[in-house]
């Protein structure tokens, strides 16, 4: 049986076991890269660069990892912070993320009007709502874990998810969701 994340972390901290850290990277690279790809609107090269820096940063601050929490949640939190700092440093990085790619939806699914509207609605959610939806549905995190990753109150996460769902419902009934106008305002700023 492969060792738990916490056991690998302990080995890295105790004796700088790079093979153990390599195993941690191998286990969680997909989640971190996918999260950053979604934040960078599918810019795979930029996302992989950010992911690499995220893991190096995680290695340097491994001593601060709280072993009561999940390692992948901690990593995604670092990735999110690193992404935000990178945004501040370099404004050329796209500001508005698209988390779930409408093109990834099977064609049979897209053929449905409802599902086409949902794909459009997803693209038009506010960034923080998209992040919450991505972490909830794509990464499978609990509300508490999403709050930890984003560094916001649990209630805010629930609000984002509820509002996203309302937008989906609205779009399925009325076409383009009401979040569209808000999104346009954000882009203008």
């Amino acid at each position: 049986m492969s060792p738990e994340d916490s056991a690998l972390v302990a080995r890295v901290i105790a004796c700088d076991d790079r093979a153990a850290f390599g195993e941690l990277v191998h286990r969680h690279q997909s989640a971190v890269r996918r999260f950053l790809r979604s934040l960078t609107r599918g810019d795979t090269a930029l996302a992989d660069d950010l992911a690499q820096d995220t893991f190096v940063l995680a290695y340097r601050s491994l001593g601060r990892f709280d072993r009561a929490s999940k390692f992948v949640t901690w990593l995604l939190g670092i990735a999110h912070n690193y992404w935000r700092n990178a945004q501040r440093r370099q404004r050329s990085i796209p500001l508005e993320p698209v988390h779930l790619d409408a093109e990834a939806v099977p064609s049979a699914t897209r053929s449905s009007d409802l599902q086409h509207d949902l794909a459009a609605a997803l693209e038009h959610l506010a960034p923080e709502e998209q992040t919450a939806v991505h972490l909830s549905f794509q990464q499978g995190l609990s509300h508490r874990e999403i709050a930890d990753v984003l560094g916001c109150p649990l209630g805010t996460v629930k609000t984002h998810l509820t509002r996203s769902k309302e937008n989906f419902v609205s779009s399925s009934r009325h076409g383009i969701p009401k979040a569209d106008a808000r999104f346009t305002r954000r882009c203008a700023h």
């Binding site: 790079r18 850290f21 990277v25 191998h26 690279q29 890269r33 992911a51 690499q52 190096v56």
Partner: peptide, 11 residues
């Protein structure tokens, strides 16, 4: 090769 690149980038 992502993991290998990360390990190579470690201090």
């Amino acid at each position: 090769g992502f993991s290998a690149r990360v390990l190579a980038a470690l201090p």
